[in-house]
Design a protein around this nucleic acid. Sequence first.
DNA 1: TGCTATTATATGACTAGTCATACATGAGAC
DNA 2: GTCTCATGTATGACTAGTCATATAATAGCA
Lengths: 180, 180
Amino acid sequence: MSLPYVILGLLQQRQRTGYDLKTECFDDCIAHLWQADQAQIYRTLDRLEAQGWVSCTVEIQHDRPNRKIYRITEAGDTELRQWLQSHQIPPIVREPLLVQLYFAAQIPNPAIIQLLEQELTVRQKKLAECEAVVIPAAENSTERQQQLHHLVLDLVTRREKTYVNWLQDAIATLQSQSQS
Amino acid sequence: MSLPYVILGLLQQRQRTGYDLKTECFDDCIAHLWQADQAQIYRTLDRLEAQGWVSCTVEIQHDRPNRKIYRITEAGDTELRQWLQSHQIPPIVREPLLVQLYFAAQIPNPAIIQLLEQELTVRQKKLAECEAVVIPAAENSTERQQQLHHLVLDLVTRREKTYVNWLQDAIATLQSQSQS
DNA sequence: TGCTATTATATGACTAGTCATACATGAGAC
DNA sequence: GTCTCATGTATGACTAGTCATATAATAGCA
């Protein structure tokens, strides 16, 4: 599981609350990389604290609910550094659309094409989002860090491009067959 | 969840046992598309039977354990046909390697490069596997079916190619930086 | 004799992730 | 006056998927 390490990485940048993590990170910059549910974030923070990889102080607020501010510990830092260099098993991708296409022989061509076009719209939007991302030259971010972020964004973008191209080709193939 | 529909699709081709599904399908042709655990296959078959989408007869064997032979019902066929035409939400891909790269700024370059090269080996092997797949012109498979299978395989292959290319580029980028 | 493999089904225990909802406070809208 | 939104944290119930292990018969190997 990588989520604990995503959180450790984010807490290494600076201290944050669970709410910060959700709204500043997982809804934003990291979203293309690792999506996470609010419930899961809080539960993972609990686990990280129990393991001694993060520590927590409560900030009492009177106009708003109190905040639990988390920061990475030395043990957490060591753990993160080790994880960052250890081999992780690649994810298994399960694509429902491919299953549909695989078994679609009895389905009329226009219905299949419609499915693919629906997906194309979604993917084109995602691709546009990827291409719109500007990696900020934040005060504390080094050139090296920006380069790494570019590499990450590059794969995400290429992935979407590949998908879009394939969808366009697949639609063209099926359309040419419809007409013949 | 698509697994029930993968199984329906496979049972539509011909009747099978849980064991058949695992050994002939999920370990083989479908593996690039949808991986499934043996436990999950059996439990899904139970659910499909309870829903009336498949039926089952027991074949008594004396030299070996009895087999439960499953076939798709008319209700199952209708259900499958509908599912095949309904929009499925695209999967969320979570790539641990990208998380590592994103937070790798403090990690020495050679360590990062090693990670990427490890992944490159894995992905090149996968790509070779994809390219080695020959879609059989089985007796009962139509030209249309083969075309669809080609489209599916095409995306899987393109996906791996994209990954391999990106890894090579990323490694080159990091290496050039190491030397400067 | 004991070890492993193949064929076949089944179950318990677990992890990762999702969805809904609860609680609490203050601010602004209608 | 009520309704919703933003800020915060927390929990219960669920789904999908994984891992290990049980059962049971036969066959082959050392």
